[in-house]
Design a protein around this nucleic acid. Sequence first.
RNA 1: GCCCCCGUAGCUCAGCUGGAUAGAGCAUCGGACUUCUAAUCCGAGGGUCCCAGGUUCGAAUCCUGGCGGGGGCGCCA
Length: 559
Amino acid sequence: MSHTTTESGLRDAVLSAASELAGERAATQASRRTTLERPPKPDFGDYSTNAALLLAPAAKSSPRELAGRLGELLSSRLSGELDRFEVAGPGFLNLYLSDSWHVRALAKVLEAGDDFGGGGMRERERVIVEFVSANPTGPMHVGHARNAAYGDALARLLAFCGHEVWREFYVNDAGSQIAKLGESILALANHMRVPEDGYRGEYVERLVASMTNATSRSAQELGRDAVDVMIGEIQRSLHEFRVIGFDHWQRESVLHEPRADLLSEDGRALSPVEHALELLERHGHTYRDDGALWLRSTDFGDDKDRVLVRSNGEHTYFASDIAYHQDKRERGFDRQVDVWGADHHGYIARMRAAYEALGGDPDHLEMLIMQLVHLVHRGERAQMSKRAGEFVTLDDLLDEIGVDAARWFLLSRSHDTTIDLDLDLAREQSSENPVYYVQYAHARIASMLAKAGQGRVEGALEEVGRASERLHPAERALVKKLVGFGGEIDEAAMRRAPHRIATYALELAQDFTAFYRDCRVVGAETPVLESLRIALSVASQRTIARSLDLLGVSAPAEM
RNA sequence: GCCCCCGUAGCUCAGCUGGAUAGAGCAUCGGACUUCUAAUCCGAGGGUCCCAGGUUCGAAUCCUGGCGGGGGCGCCA
């Protein structure tokens, strides 16, 4: 028997009662669309369900009549937990839960401890999340910062839900862009013009200065060294940005090196790229044309076929990426998540095609596109160009508004909406950033609990559930908000939408602050009531801290 | 031309696998500091949810067609 003091437990109780009234088959069919939600207004009850609206036809009954019978049945099953019910509108069933339900629900929240809200996934998967993957040809700009914050938060979220998460950064250290960087450095070192399509900007000058004997070395060598320097800078910036360390930095160049465990039919060691191409060729998914090797990606839904090996014999970036995805699959991950920039969207169809051609299940490959961050300056959109050296770097952003405000800003919006960043405005308003409101609620609880004393708090947690006082509406609202955390986590994870956690955290902080305003905690009318309120504060503090942690935002004990 | 994302309050954005009177922060206006931390709280004003059809008992949400903004359509990465 599931606990009806959790949202999922309550929902199960509704579904089970509905299935008794309308038949199991109909209830099962409608179960996905059956909602149990906290209505917008307290007048509509603590929870509300549309079950009767969905099942009325199957029950050969009017929605309102069925809702009434459903209410009766639930009343008898949840005696002591359900105060009353109401049938509303076209056939909603509004449930009014008792104070003792709220108290027991709080006890359940506290019982879960620090893991409250986590572990909700039905099946545990091995997930690899590849994100940032900024080209090491320059510092990270705010677009990369968004990708980093999102990928990091998503990985934290999936791990909290119980998945085994592996984080990876794909380093494009091969190919023409690196050569261009090397050429640009060489040109500058020789006091010559940087090539038209080369790299410029203050950081390139710094690279030149950091290279010894630059003028006597090849562009290729310089490019390679510059990549190492840039990766070091990227790592430092990411660390600063509180991105949890990557489990692996996969260099593209390594995918071109032979590996003893990958053998051709005649026993020769193959590189991962050769290995992937061999598999594709063997299964007849490639052909030669104009001296190039093509993937017949149109067979798998792409608009046109794609080149794997150019007529000059060089592999395309696409070929490396195919090898990379194949390698990840061979390493045994159940699911691959790629977090890519907006400019990669046209790349999705071909990657999925290649993945499928190699025998992968396309449902296990998720390519998530981050929309752009637009810079706004004095009301005008500004262009960001790395080659021209004009952009706002992650480091600049952190200098201006700090890690917490930056992460909150980037993470409180959906990944598929473009966001405008006005640095002047961000700087001006950073003290008004809602992140501080949430942190302040956390700090305030910490201070309050310190005032109560550790022993008093422990005592309060011992006797949760003993309270029998009438609850204040603010207390009831706060309990319900806490009870909804697990569902919110599951939803955010399922939708790959960590920004929902930010919305939740703000709402929770608001509900806590209303409770704090209306209900005296330390020094409440009775010791039992004080205990209940201390327990409620502890649960709120933990949940705020957890929400902030999932976003990579700090939860200070004082402000 | 084709593909993807977006269009919700003055601004920035939530809400979107359909649900009740559409929300938050900021900004504006008015009020509350003898505190459990005022980085707070209370109150007010502010909306053709881009437009037009369609599906439905019910549409900001789903479908179709427009309009507007952004991005992508290389033997670049």
